[in-house]
Amino acid sequence: MPTFHVYLFEGRSIEEKRAFVDAVTRTTCESLGVEPNSVNIVIDEVKRENWGTAGKLWCDA
């Protein structure tokens, strides 16, 4: 049962998230030989003010 936990900056449309979930599911099924109903994807949207890289918040970049 492959499970993916993906962190993204907030702001993507529902259509973009649907396309992403579909693509990851199809690729996982092809590469691992599993059924689509066994693939789980959790999208966790994060505000840029709550994510930092190299000592800086993304909202300040």
Score class of each variant (00 low, 15 high):
58 W>R: 14
35 E>Q: 07
7 Y>P: 06
38 S>K: 00
29 C>D: 01
60 D>A: 15
23 A>D: 04
3 T>R: 07
26 R>Y: 04
33 G>S: 06
21 V>I: 14
28 T>C: 13
56 K>V: 10
14 I>K: 00
3 T>K: 06
45 E>D: 11
3 T>N: 05
61 A>K: 14
51 W>K: 07
21 V>F: 02
53 T>P: 00
20 F>I: 11
37 N>E: 12
29 C>I: 00
29 C>N: 06
50 N>H: 15
4 F>S: 09
48 R>L: 03
4 F>A: 06
44 D>E: 08
36 P>M: 15
9 F>N: 04
30 E>M: 09
50 N>D: 13
42 V>A: 12
20 F>L: 14
37 N>P: 04
31 S>C: 14
42 V>S: 09
11 G>Q: 12
2 P>Y: 03
9 F>Y: 09
42 V>F: 13
21 V>Q: 00
61 A>R: 15
58 W>H: 12
61 A>V: 13
1 M>Q: 12
61 A>E: 11
17 K>Q: 13
56 K>G: 07
3 T>W: 08
57 L>G: 14
7 Y>L: 08
3 T>Q: 09
17 K>A: 11
50 N>V: 06
37 N>G: 05
51 W>Y: 15
20 F>A: 10
11 G>S: 12
23 A>W: 09
15 E>G: 01
12 R>H: 14
45 E>P: 05
41 I>Q: 04
30 E>P: 02
50 N>T: 08
50 N>S: 14
30 E>H: 08
10 E>S: 12
44 D>K: 13
28 T>F: 12
57 L>A: 12
39 V>E: 05
7 Y>M: 09
8 L>E: 07
36 P>V: 01
57 L>V: 09
19 A>R: 12
32 L>V: 01
3 T>D: 04
41 I>E: 07
59 C>Q: 08
57 L>M: 14
47 K>L: 08
13 S>M: 11
35 E>G: 01
48 R>I: 00
35 E>A: 11
57 L>T: 13
59 C>D: 12
61 A>S: 11
34 V>D: 11
5 H>T: 06
55 G>A: 15
15 E>Y: 01
19 A>G: 13
36 P>Y: 01
12 R>G: 12
2 P>M: 11
45 E>I: 05
43 I>T: 03
38 S>T: 02
26 R>T: 03
44 D>C: 05
22 D>Q: 04
47 K>T: 08
61 A>Y: 10
3 T>M: 10
54 A>R: 15
47 K>M: 08
5 H>Y: 10
35 E>Y: 03
31 S>M: 15
26 R>G: 01
28 T>Y: 11
44 D>V: 04
5 H>K: 05
52 G>C: 07
32 L>C: 05
29 C>S: 10
11 G>V: 12
1 M>N: 11
56 K>T: 08
22 D>N: 01
39 V>Q: 04
24 V>K: 05
16 E>P: 06
59 C>P: 03
43 I>E: 09
